[in-house]
């Protein structure tokens, strides 16, 4: 059985028998992995304190070819992201990232760039730029997952949205997966209007352009994105309400 090394973020741990635990890890090299950590719950285990949620570790695991769980043999703590334990808003934002990762990360589907961005984001999640940092992460995540909505052209007829028309509200349809031109909007139901500044801010973040916009725009965009995540994942996001309460 092959012994593999990986960088991993702990997504979840659950008790198994008296002293062991099953850990769900998101690795840079293999995507999501579920592994058994024998003796992982002992105070003096060889994993020490590495196996807690949202801990970044260097791991060694034995990969099983059958449907059995992989076996975790080593885990060394690299980062605990202490900033997340200093503000409630940062804690909820980290939980939100965790919720998306738990729902979207797949086995044997590594996303090294997204992994690196996530680690960077978890280190930077602190006020006053917390919402903006989270927003950027969400947009990168949507793009990595192939779920980023169309913003520059009509999702239905593919007609480019003219910049001159951006002073008027734009029609947004989460179910269709993007913005609609005036003609297509009339033929579909379930859309809402997107204020031009919101549309502009979203496009700027998506293109990684430096652009200053008020915190309120950021909050509106976050709410809009949460709505969009819920549509795409076909389930309400548990952390969405926590995030809006904390802010």
């Amino acid at each position: 059985m092959p012994l593999e090394k990986a960088h991993a973020l702990v997504l979840r741990t659950s008790a198994f028998r008296e002293t062991s635990c099953v850990v769900t890890l998101w690795t840079r090299e293999f995507g999501k992995v579920r592994a058994l950590a024998k003796g992982g719950r002992r105070l003096r285990s060889r994993f020490q304190s590495a196996l807690d949620v949202l801990h970044l570790c260097d791991i060694v695991l034995i990969r099983k070819t059958s449907a059995q769980l992989d076996l975790l043999t080593e885990a060394h703590l690299v980062d605990r992201f202490n900033v997340l334990r200093q503000s409630l808003q940062a804690y909820y934002a980290a939980c939100f990232i965790l919720e998306i990762l738990c729902a979207c990360a797949q086995e044997n589907d590594p996303h090294p760039q997204w992994f690196d961005t996530t680690i960077r984001t978890l280190r930077q999640l602190q006020p006053p730029h917390l919402l903006r940092t989270l927003l950027s992460w969400e947009i990168i995540a949507l793009r990595e997952l192939g779920m980023h909505p169309m913003l520059d052209q009509c999702v239905q007829c593919k007609k480019l949205l003219e910049v001159s028309s951006s002073s008027q509200p734009i029609t947004w349809n989460a179910l269709a997966g993007g913005v609609l031109c005036a003609r297509c909007a009339m033929a579909r139901s379930g859309q809402r209007t997107l204020q031009p500044e919101l549309w502009h801010a979203w496009r700027c973040i998506a293109k990684q352009q430096d652009f200053e916009f008020p915190e309120a725009t950021c909050q509106h965009l976050i709410d809009l994105l949460h709505d969009y995540w819920s549509h795409r994942l076909e389930q309400p996001l548990r952390l969405a309400s926590y995030l809006s309460t904390a802010s």
């Binding site: 807690d52 949202l54 997340l84 334990r85 503000s87 409630l88 804690y91």
Partner: peptide, 14 residues
């Protein structure tokens, strides 16, 4: 002293 324990402490202190 876990992620969730620390989160609970943060919430209570707020």
């Amino acid at each position: 002293p876990t992620f969730e324990g620390d989160g609970t402490a943060l919430y209570l202190s707020s």
